[in-house]
């Protein structure tokens, strides 16, 4: 049930993608997104799909996990797709009541579906193959220059790291409390919205209590280890860029140039 939520989950592995420096991966995701939104034709989108497919294969990510990640987006995809089909002016295909479906609209909808789908899958591969610790380390270093203009980069990365760290913990906790209340006859699954909202109280109050308790304990544990923010802090695990990062960068640059180049040529 709750423990099956895959958002932001990391699946350990030992592929080239897993071993890439998190900074490289973050930049690659950005390059990938820019390329994805520059691609608007069947050829370029096809190239992006091939690229994504290759990454999925190389990282040995299970396709069913990616599809499961897309499931919550299904409603939005269907909704925007339908709007696009009917609201784009152009050559009509068929009419329903006062609405006209157009070829242009269909094309728009397909491009949109492909883009959003591939965007979500691409970013999921990032979190599936990068441990939260590595991810925030990479983010902190990439955002490092912002420290000059007094952005508390280290603190932000730390907060993100902790938030990610506690997602599974709190989910497990919620699962446990839910089981315990169900054992006392609580019903979370039937009734109207108001009823269901009320039914959440026995879950939410203990969950908040536990979140606060954990936050408190964590703060004490950090204080007792003399934690005082990012100033002068060194790292146990140093990130180093290697040959494979250079190669990944090259691939990214080629992909972006190709997509934009083809776009300029109007293909």
């Amino acid at each position: 049930m709750l423990r099956d939520i895959t958002l932001g989950q990391y699946f350990p592995g030992d592929t080239v993608i897993h071993r890439l420096d998190p900074r490289t991966k973050l930049i690659m995701v950005m390059v990938y997104l820019v390329a994805l939104f520059s691609a608007g034709t069947a050829l370029t989108l096809g190239m992006m799909a091939v690229f994504l497919g290759t990454i999925i294969c190389v990282s040995k990510t299970k396709l069913c996990l990616l599809v499961r990640g897309l499931r919550p987006l299904a409603i939005i995809l269907v909704f925007t797709g339908t709007l696009n089909i009917f609201l784009t002016p152009g050559e009509p295909i068929f009419r329903v009541w006062i609405l006209t479906a157009t070829y242009e609209g269909l094309r728009h909808a397909l491009v949109l579906l492909a883009r959003i789908g591939m965007m979500v899958m691409g970013t999921f591969i990032l979190t599936y193959t990068t441990s939260p610790m590595n991810l925030t380390d990479g983010l902190e270093m990439l955002l490092g220059p912002l420290k000059r203009i007094r952005v508390p980069v280290h603190e932000l990365a730390m907060i993100m790291n902790m938030a990610l760290r506690f997602v599974p913990t709190l989910l497990a906790e919620a699962d446990k409390i839910m089981s315990a209340q169900k054992a006392r006859g609580a019903d979370f699954e039937s009734g109207n919205i108001l009823r269901r909202g009320q039914a959440m109280i026995p879950l939410l109050i203990p969950l908040f209590m536990s979140a606060f308790r954990r936050a408190d304990e964590l703060a004490i544990a950090m204080e007792s280890r003399c934690y005082h923010g990012g100033e002068g802090r060194t790292r146990m695990r140093q990130l180093r860029l290697g040959l494979r990062d250079a190669l990944a960068g090259l691939v990214g640059a080629l992909l972006l140039t190709a997509i934009i180049g083809l776009g300029v040529l109007g293909l």
């Binding site: 315990a180 054992a183 203990p206």
Partner: peptide, 16 residues
């Protein structure tokens, strides 16, 4: 569920 009562570990965390 009513006839098989289950008390979880640290049940005091479920008081609300």
């Amino acid at each position: 569920r009513a006839q098989v009562g289950l008390v979880f570990q640290y049940p005091e965390y479920q008081l609300f």
